[in-house]
Design a protein around this nucleic acid. Structure first.
Lengths: 132, 132
DNA sequence: TAAATATATGAACAATAGTTCAAATGAAAG
DNA sequence: CTTTCATTTGAACTATTGTTCATATATTTA
């Protein structure tokens, strides 16, 4: 259980009076306080982690890579990745919820495509990192 | 079980002869074939997903945000995030293994800092995405 | 309306992962 | 070399998650 409390806005180290902290312990109060002030809200950091979770599965990464090149229907994505249509559909749902892909219906077929260009940038940077 | 087979290099849809595919099913063979040719190797896509998994936890995101501002020792990070020192140490290990942070020892204390600038770019892009 | 195709969904199962707790290292100071 | 502080590590527990299987929904056509 890692994503438990998203209600408390900030860490509360600053709410401790200096006098309550054991003085013999190595600690850099001024630095901690300064950094703490510049931290984004807990909720934003949580949402950010949720976004990266979506990228953190190789099936979804493959789907995104496929959509880099062309919009594609569910059945073709499944063939291309050699996976069941159900598995792909489940993952497309996740991608849809994160607004990373969009879709259009054409008769019985649903075509998926990339939602915006952040996806490319994020993946490009990741590629650079692992290529070092 | 999602990250099972990393040995097979590419999807094998193209190894099916056209005559073996049921003809009544909606499919776009030429498109699938073309996209398949441009797909990176399975292993690379797997590593990429592994990298994003590291970003996909709010504790680790917070640690990275802290290190944006300053190098910091384990104890102070734990105080700042209001978590146990052990939990932080476990997560720092993960970040270390992905080469996202580095550390230097000074006496009993270990200071952690960001490894390179890809981290900032990736997180900045993620921030942009969720801010829309 | 019934049949066929394309996609979506829900429950179940197995595997993964984050935190806690206890204990082990590592380094400096007495 | 024993004690103290800082960090690391391993095992256990729980929660989360990706796939499968069966079934449901949606759209077109006979």
């Amino acid at each position: 259980m890692s994503e438990k409390s998203i209600d408390s806005k900030r860490s509360d180290i600053n709410s401790l009076k200096v006098s309550e902290k054991p003085s013999f312990i190595h600690a850099h109060d001024d630095l901690v306080e300064k950094v703490n002030e510049n931290m984004p809200d807990e909720e934003i950091l949580y949402d950010l982690a949720e976004l990266y979770k979506v990228f953190g599965d190789s099936t979804r990464i493959k789907i995104l890579y496929v959509l880099f090149e062309s919009e594609m229907c569910v059945y073709d994505i499944a063939r291309l990745l050699n996976m069941t249509q159900s598995a792909i559909s489940h993952q497309l749902k996740v991608l849809k919820q994160s607004k990373l892909v969009r879709y259009r219906r054409e008769g019985k077929t649903v075509f998926y495509s990339l939602a915006d260009d952040h996806v490319r940038t994020i993946i490009d940077q990741g590629m650079e990192h692992i290529s070092e």
